[in-house]
Simulated scan of single mutants.
Amino acid sequence: MNFQQLKYAVVVAEAGSFREAARRLFMAQSSLSTAIKELEADYQIQIFERTKRGVFITDQGAEFLSYARDVLSQVEVLENRYLGANTKRLFSVSGQHYDFVSETFAQLVAEDEDQGHDYRLLETSTNQVLDDVRTAYSELGILYINDYNKKVIKQFLSRYDLEFYALGTFANHIFVGNNHPLADYEVVGLEDLKAYPSLSFAQDQGSSQQLIEETFLPLEHQQGTVYVSDRATAINVLVETPAYLLGTGILTSQFQHLMKTIPLAESQYGQVGYIQRRYQELSVIAQQFITLLQANVPLSDGENR
């Protein structure tokens, strides 16, 4: 197997036929077919089912192509870093949806006077954060761990050879817009929330329910759940509707004036922290980012950091 063969397989899958794939790759169809057969022989699987109606991807092939795309993505990162014209180093961090992370990220970029790095911040699903760090797509990941999800999260950390380092320990809060009926409450209970819809950040299809980002499961008998994938939409929903979001209560950005955070009476504690690959020596820029994170995350609730 070589990387070129992986690329051939991905192009065939995208093109839907060997003829079209060969045209895109500027090679003979017979040579392409031979390369794919060698790849299938090497791994003792059938990636494509060849019929008169065209090429179809087998179940084995779908799984194999998923891994192939991951590998090719990492090869592209390496080539861009070491062989491309751009000699700047890329610092990438993936995280759940926290405004203190984006604030810290912006501060990091602003302090780079020499413009010696390229930067990437990805706000994404819990599973994707874990996978991004596992595959070195991101050097660091930001996650929330509590009693409900820690067993599953720790299984992923062990399986992916990752380490979690806590930044702080926080009690559960709700986020609501300033005009929400509960906005003036000093403390809210779970019963108070059942009359209102919840807001939740969407996770990957098929993900374990224990990988949800929120600090509690959606309540029974509530007025439905609104799923979003980005913080901007979440903020708009909270400001314009009676929805609420369960979270850590950390709110550090310019959006503070648009909403309120209220402690939950049935509060539990959880930890916000960063993950990295085990035994990894962090880059200087990653260490700077962590230092800024530690300064920007508020003091822990009830427990020492």
Rank of each mutant, 00 (worst) to 15 (best):
V11Y: 00
V11D: 07
V11R: 03
V12E: 06
V12A: 06
V12Q: 07
A13G: 03
A13Y: 01
A13H: 01
E14P: 08
A15I: 07
A15T: 04
A15L: 08
G16I: 09
G16R: 07
G16A: 07
S17F: 06
S17D: 08
F18A: 13
F18E: 11
F18C: 14
R19Q: 15
R19D: 08
R19V: 10
E20D: 10
E20M: 10
E20V: 12
E20C: 04
E20N: 13
E20I: 14
E20L: 14
A21S: 05
A21Q: 02
A21E: 02
A21V: 04
A22E: 00
A22I: 04
A22G: 00
R23T: 08
R23Y: 14
R23W: 12
R23K: 10
R23I: 11
R23D: 15
R24C: 04
R24A: 06
R24H: 05
R24K: 15
L25I: 09
L25W: 07
L25C: 05
F26N: 10
F26K: 12
F26C: 08
F26V: 11
F26G: 14
M27L: 10
M27Q: 13
M27V: 13
M27R: 06
M27E: 06
M27P: 02
M27D: 05
M27C: 12
M27Y: 03
A28P: 02
A28V: 05
A28Q: 15
A28S: 14
Q29Y: 01
Q29H: 02
Q29I: 05
Q29N: 06
Q29F: 01
S30T: 11
S30I: 01
S30Q: 07
S30K: 03
S30V: 03
S31T: 15
S31K: 11
S31D: 01
S31R: 08
L32W: 00
L32S: 03
L32R: 01
L32Q: 00
L32E: 01
S33Q: 13
S33N: 08
S33Y: 03
T34R: 09
T34H: 09
T34P: 00
T34W: 02
T34K: 13
T34Y: 13
T34C: 00
A35Q: 09
A35R: 08
A35D: 05
I36C: 09
I36S: 14
I36Q: 08
K37E: 15
K37S: 14
K37V: 06
K37D: 09
E38N: 15
E38K: 09
E38G: 06
E38F: 12
E38Q: 13
E38T: 11
L39A: 05
L39Y: 02
L39I: 02
L39F: 00
L39D: 05
E40Q: 07
A41N: 12
D42R: 10
D42I: 07
D42P: 00
D42M: 10
D42H: 14
D42K: 12
Y43I: 13
Y43C: 15
Y43E: 15
Y43G: 11
Y43D: 11
Y43R: 10
Y43T: 13
Y43N: 15
Q44F: 10
Q44T: 10
Q44L: 15
I45Y: 11
I45W: 09
I45L: 12
I45N: 08
I45H: 15
I45S: 09
